[in-house]
Computed example of a mutant assay.
Amino acid sequence: MAFENPTREEIGDILASAGNIAVVGLSDKSDRTSYMVAYAMQLKGYRIIPVNPLVDDDILGEKCYHSLAEIPEPVDIVDVFRRSEFCPEVAREAAAIGAKVLWLQQGVISQEAAEIAQEAGMTVIMDRCIKVEEAITMRDRTRSPK
């Protein structure tokens, strides 16, 4: 069966109820797409949790973790800014921490990661930018800050 993303309405529901968004591969460099997208989501009221094994400092004012397993609180969405070949391992880590959604950013596609996440009961979104989807799906909704 071919992979299919949730509908825009379902994506809107996911974003409306999201609390913590762990951003895997979040760069500490402000000119990188991952930084710009995470910053925009933060400005919209989402809690961003940076995950990058190469960064020991805070990013966007939040403690950066080296792995998903280090995060000491629940994660709703794992937003992935990694190349496709690294996504199956990220999916396994996301499943292990009980994340609800595995979100692979625009240009990132991994059928294997999707299958791992879906088998763990997670919703999967692939090849979509969370910032763009938030703008499209939430423009007619009111988001309550978490």
Rank of each mutant, 00 (worst) to 15 (best):
A22S: 11
M1S: 11
A120R: 03
Q106F: 11
P50M: 14
A18M: 01
P88D: 09
S144Y: 12
D28R: 11
M36I: 14
E89P: 05
C64M: 03
A96T: 00
H66C: 02
Q106T: 10
Y46I: 04
I109F: 12
Q118Y: 12
Y65S: 00
D28E: 15
L26W: 02
E112K: 14
I130L: 15
I97V: 08
V55T: 11
I71C: 10
M36H: 08
I97W: 00
E115K: 14
L60S: 04
C64I: 06
A16C: 12
I11L: 06
Q118D: 11
A113F: 05
G19K: 02
A120F: 07
F81K: 00
A16W: 05
I116R: 04
P72K: 13
K131Q: 14
I59H: 02
G107L: 06
R141V: 14
Q105P: 04
K29G: 04
P6T: 08
I71D: 08
F81L: 05
I14M: 06
M36K: 15
M1N: 07
G121C: 09
M126G: 08
V108W: 01
I49P: 04
G45Q: 10
F86N: 11
R139E: 14
V132T: 15
G25W: 05
E85Y: 15
I11H: 00
R143T: 09
A95H: 00
L15I: 10
E73P: 07
D127S: 08
E134G: 10
V23R: 02
S27V: 03
A40S: 08
F86C: 09
G45H: 12
D13C: 05
V24L: 03
V24W: 06
R32T: 04
I125L: 14
E73T: 14
A22C: 11
D140Q: 14
E62G: 03
A18R: 01
E133M: 13
S17H: 09
L68M: 02
Y46E: 01
L15R: 00
E10V: 13
E4N: 07
I21G: 05
I48K: 06
S30G: 04
M126Q: 15
D76M: 00
H66E: 09
L104N: 01
A117C: 14
E62N: 06
A113K: 10
L102F: 01
R8M: 10
T137V: 09
